[in-house]
């Protein structure tokens, strides 16, 4: 029982990170109907920014500011940086293609992904870096009940990801930009006719989507995974899987899909096979896609000629 509980907690933490990535895919898809394949690499850039902010503030061993402030700054700078990167990517790789064929943005996104990965390789070399979290956050932090331990970092990541998701939901439902975004997702032509500044809303969408990926990147670093230029591929695919399982374009769907995927992956690792957990995850996606092509919470798309 405690083992199951522990796996569930780990899965939820992981799922929170996946959900943040998935939300980025889903936001962009909802507004522009393009698959932003460079999203996983934005996540990688976020992790790098977090790392260099940490080093800039004195490194893991003797930070010049309190640890809590350092982590806060890491998140803020990473989210701001990746958000701006998202705007730049949209401006140069997607905006010229807005009225192009369906395949063009997809290929362009592949190009951006290659560019980002190799720019990171050129700038930061192929070394795998680590946030070295355990040296400044004690592993005894956190609490346990009924044999389930949840350490401080995991708790923090879980809480922050849920907070970000709530923030996003508030943003989408409560602000003017969020409302405009939903209007564009519903019918772009009609939205233009209502006087909505589509360019501005799309910029915001990319900013928010990339900032969430940046936050996910820093979380990934805090959870003690390596930071390297190729790290974006698999989490990018997983986040993407989560978005699709939940129904791409649907925000609650992305959250549900992310958490579900995290739990399934960690249960598969715990009970079936560590080696095959990724295979199981991807197989699950294919099955969901075949049974419910629009995902769990997605709306049924009508094919228009």
């Amino acid at each position: 029982m405690s083992y199951l509980g522990q796996q569930l907690v780990n899965g939820l933490t992981l799922g929170g990170v996946y959900a943040l990535i998935a939300l980025g895919y889903t936001l962009v898809y909802g507004v522009l109907q393009i698959l932003n394949f460079a999203h996983g690499d934005v996540y990688m850039v976020g992790a790098f920014i977090g790392f260099f902010v940490m080093v800039g503030l004195g490194g893991p061993l003797k930070p010049s500011v309190p640890v809590a402030v350092m982590i806060l700054i890491m998140f803020l700078v990473a989210m701001l940086g990746t958000g701006l990167l998202g705007i730049v990517i949209e401006r140069f790789a997607y905006r010229p293609l807005r009225n192009s064929t369906r395949i063009a943005p997809l290929i362009s996104a592949l190009g951006v992904s290659i560019l980002l990965q190799n720019a990171a390789l050129l700038l930061f070399s192929a070394n795998i870096r680590s946030y070295d979290t355990s040296s400044y956050i004690s592993s005894t932090l956190g609490f346990s009940f009924a044999d389930i331990t949840i350490d401080g970092v995991r708790l923090f990541v879980l809480v922050l990801s849920i907070a970000l998701m709530f923030g996003l939901a508030r943003w989408v439902n409560g602000t003017q930009v969020g409302r405009a975004m939903r209007a564009i997702a519903y019918d772009r032509d009609a939205a233009v006719m209502m006087g909505i500044d589509v360019d501005k809303v799309i910029r915001w969408t990319f900013f928010v989507s990339a900032a969430l990926a940046g936050a996910a990147g820093v979380m990934n670093g805090l959870l003690l995974r390596g930071v390297s230029n190729g790290m974006g591929l698999v989490p990018g695919l997983k986040g993407f899987t989560a978005a699709v399982v939940g129904g791409i374009g649907s925000i609650p769907g992305a959250m549900l899909g992310g958490l579900l995927l995290g739990v399934v992956e960690s249960l598969a690792q715990g009970y079936l096979s560590t080696n095959f957990s990724d295979t199981i995850t991807f197989a699950l996606l294919i099955v969901v896609m075949l049974l419910k092509p629009n995902g769990l919470l997605g709306k049924r798309a009508i094919v228009k000629a």
């Binding site: 592949l110 190009g111 951006v112 290659i114 560019l115 190799n118």
Partner: peptide, 8 residues
């Protein structure tokens, strides 16, 4: 890098 830029 060149391939990526070229694709875009």
């Amino acid at each position: 890098l060149l391939i990526g830029a070229m694709l875009v």
